[in-house]
Design a protein around this nucleic acid. Sequence first.
DNA 1: TTGTATGCGTTATCAT
DNA 2: ATGATAACGCATACAA
Lengths: 347, 347
Amino acid sequence: MSTRRATISDVAREAGVSPSTASVVFSGKTKVSDATRRRVLDAASALGYTGPDPRAASLRRGRSGIVGVVFEEHLGTAFLDPVKTLMMDGLSDGVAPLGAGLLLLRDTEPDGGTSLTTAPLDAAVLVGCSGHLRRSLDAVKARGIPVVVIEGDAGDDVPRIGLDNREAQRQAASHLRALGHTRVAIVALPARAGWEGGWILDGTAITVDVTRERLAGALDVFPDAAAYAAAGSFIDEGLAAGRLIFADPAERPTAVIAQSDLLAAGVIRAAEEAGLRVPQDVSVTGFDGIVVDGLAPYELTTLVQPAADKGRAAGRAVTAMLDGDGAASISFTCDFREGNTTGPAPA
Amino acid sequence: MSTRRATISDVAREAGVSPSTASVVFSGKTKVSDATRRRVLDAASALGYTGPDPRAASLRRGRSGIVGVVFEEHLGTAFLDPVKTLMMDGLSDGVAPLGAGLLLLRDTEPDGGTSLTTAPLDAAVLVGCSGHLRRSLDAVKARGIPVVVIEGDAGDDVPRIGLDNREAQRQAASHLRALGHTRVAIVALPARAGWEGGWILDGTAITVDVTRERLAGALDVFPDAAAYAAAGSFIDEGLAAGRLIFADPAERPTAVIAQSDLLAAGVIRAAEEAGLRVPQDVSVTGFDGIVVDGLAPYELTTLVQPAADKGRAAGRAVTAMLDGDGAASISFTCDFREGNTTGPAPA
DNA sequence: TTGTATGCGTTATCAT
DNA sequence: ATGATAACGCATACAA
């Protein structure tokens, strides 16, 4: 048998037309008479030709139809976070008009592997650029391909998809204050990469933007609140933090502001463990507005962030940039949602 | 400024060497004297050349360095499952020797989007091919690129990464029988795509392989056990199923075999709700061996499946196929792990 | 160790 | 509606 795969020229020859005509049959860029289309298609199936080679097409077109998504963490870790997962969904939508697929990339690339510098990308989306993704950013900028950053700051020339973290968190805090709470504790996201969990003290440097901004929002309302930064956004981390916070009955806060819904879920569990009722004895707020699997019957009082919209916006931004239009930074707004985990401060 | 990006020829000219020499400096395929390498690198940075264009390189090489991963669900849904997430990690490892990245693809592609037929893939991995991914499979086979299937059956000519679902589940069931349990209920995974949850009756067609196999394993030991198939692998689904199962005190089983750890976690919660202690009043087994966030202090009695290994094996299989070697199907084995959620049947 | 020549498979442009 | 032509940017076989 023939050892070589058929090319579009083979098909054209078999069909008795020119290669360009055959090409057009597949791309649909120009009108073709039904008769010739038919002949070309028949020839193609006779030769087992399944369509243009994407590699050649992308060279010729200058587009690969691939958008890289860069995470700082290990893939498995990244997707443990429902917010990131939703964002991917939105991103997937956002690049749809481009007809692009998403290539998963990690910040730290194994040697010789496909990386930002060697992958055939049309554009890239960096997720959570808190100083860490700097190298990736440089690589991408050097290649001159469009980039946008979600949840992070990459300088003025890189469009940024953000969130009103500080204002939103302030809203939740104000809600608690209005309910009469004064003794409040904060359970924060990690202060920096590799953070193992611990209290945030005066000298603690917080390099994660999201953590810093949400903390600032809470402190705007409760300047004296103590904050414990967990090692990650997990229920079990919230549980651990909650145990610390509820350990001393004398110092017990009447409300806990958690920086994520998962942390909040853990805090609630810790409260139950300590024999505290939510919200009668202690109020808890979350952040994100995701569905926390297994949290029923509680409905968190939380800030609902438009995670999927953020992804979609990022997709649209790179699409616009590829079309030669500029893309501006966008800041999204959270929605305050009152659930049944907050109530009046106990007397 | 210059409107065109520099190519390797430009660099070569600038450096006073031939294009092939410049090429070799970047690919490292051949020895180059330090002096010329230096000159080429300098010329490159002077021209702002950041390395070979991946599109051109992949056309020339015949490899794109991209492996497609095809899911049947929406991306966000797929990654809600920790098992899939772990599998992705393993897959990412498995294709590392290939130096390949992972392109996320959905079975049902939006028109005109990057798809199995238009993406520059070297190989593809189909996840969960229960009849549904058939079309994707055909597309990939037509293109003649290597495919492997995880958790599913794609015919004899497609290597398959499997699991001893039936035997493993039988092990858990036997464990329960040895503990004296006789009244056992099963909480299964969905019976088919789009399943909304419901009891599995005699006539119920089960098209999801995993569900069918695990069910068979449980029925091998408890032929009369009733089985409720949930709408998905979520804690809340397990909770709903558990409520049904524990509703009638007279018919209450002393043990529940759940087909996933998340379902088991929900069942445990339902038991607590019903005032039943685990494992004193009711035993619960899971499947997967993942860490269920928020389940502490319970440790599930479960079957630990090597999720990451499955991914790794899939990666290795496509790597082997690309190297021209054949790849055989592999079946992995689960490890039975006894936790504190099973105990002797109540008297 | 370096240079020369060639083609990878396509599609955009322009002419017919 | 169809065809001729010319890149797209690179890596390799082979010669020097």
